[in-house]
Design a protein around this nucleic acid. Sequence first.
RNA 1: GUGGGCGUCGCCUAGCGGUUAAGGCGCCAGGUUGUGGCCCUGGAGAUCGAGGGUUCGAAUCCCUCCGUCCACCCCA
Length: 400
Amino acid sequence: YWRWVRDTAVRIAESYGYGEIQTPVFERVGVFLRPGAAGTDLADKEIYAFKDRGGDDLALRTDGTHGVARAYIEHGMSSWPQPVRLFYIVSVFRYDRPQAGRYRLHHQFGVEAIGDGEPALDAEVIDLQRTFYAALGLQDLRLLINSIGDDVCRPAYLEKLRAYYADKLDLLCGDCRRRYDVNPLRLLDCKNEPCQPFKADAPKTVDYLCEACDAHFSTVQGLLQGLDIAYEIDHSLVRGIDYYTRTAFEFQPQVEGSQSTIGGGGRYDGLIAQLGGNPTPGIGFGTGLERIILNLKRQGLRPLPPPPLDAFVAVADPAAEALALRLARDLRAGGARVVTGGSGRSLRSQMRQASALSARYALVLGRQELKDGTVTLRNLSTSEEQRLPTAEALVRLKGP
RNA sequence: GUGGGCGUCGCCUAGCGGUUAAGGCGCCAGGUUGUGGCCCUGGAGAUCGAGGGUUCGAAUCCCUCCGUCCACCCCA
């Protein structure tokens, strides 16, 4: 499963012209935790932060995007042709209570397109993600999208939102009373019972977009339609950190159960500047490999089985041991997959193992073969057996 | 951060107050003094998650801890 998913990710990303980048497993904590993240679960309890021996504050990678953004600045990628298209397959760490499809260490495939704010890139990234899932055969994925505006329109929207909730504070859950001050956008995706009645009538981000954001969102939708990509607008799909802008999206399988999201992303036009670079737009997605594999299994999708073992070299006499190892090496050099037995076990035991490993052939080397430079070649499916010169056996096993 | 389930040979499981802690898979060996798959026989392998307590007696009951799984929250 692992290889299948990774190979598919690489193939699809490269077909869109994205190049692979590797970033460090840990960075200065500020790379991952921006001031705007205060009050989020990530900042409060999920990040693995620590001091190193020199007293520097570091943190394990919480996602793929921040390290890439840091690298973009640090390595002067703004001088490259824009946008810079990058993809990664990395481990990420979050201190959560583990459960099905959720681990403290998991892996993400992600892409980032940095240096261009055009809506066509939003569509490209979403299309890439959808194509990746389709290449694996994942069925029935829902695509949810939303726009959360930008610095121009969001402040006014948040005022509207606060005004709407101002007289309802006493009725909200504890989390949301805190969110009201710290992170009001998150009021929209609260799952707690007390807050549900108010969500339907809450102001929607899309109704308060500035002209530029509105045009951007409309264009993205038009492009998705042009690509025949079905989507639903989800007004409660938000991002809790201030450098996120405009388009936000998520892919969800239709099946029941928890961990509904297998991947999501969005625009982060404010991130590069926050990290100390020139103001630079960017968009990307991240998708969890473990969750993809979970869904592949649920849908009965299986990877190709590993290639069979071509030969098992059995040693029938201790004197033939060295020659057996050499024969195995020569066979491998010819492209065959070969495992050797050892003189410590009876020939019978070695043959049992050859069978248990589903080897196509058994090659027996013993006293008799040593004498005349031959090898006994046994076809383990037909049980046909013959002695032939070693060189001939090499040729025989090399075949297609 | 909250709630719940489960921890017995490498794996799966039985046993639920007194058993030499049982079985299946896998592993090793023999039945074939150089030959597999099926079958038969034998063998190795378990301080019953850890510590404490109750009891004449604990894998079995109680407590604490640890681990693991599931759900909420959140997210990938």
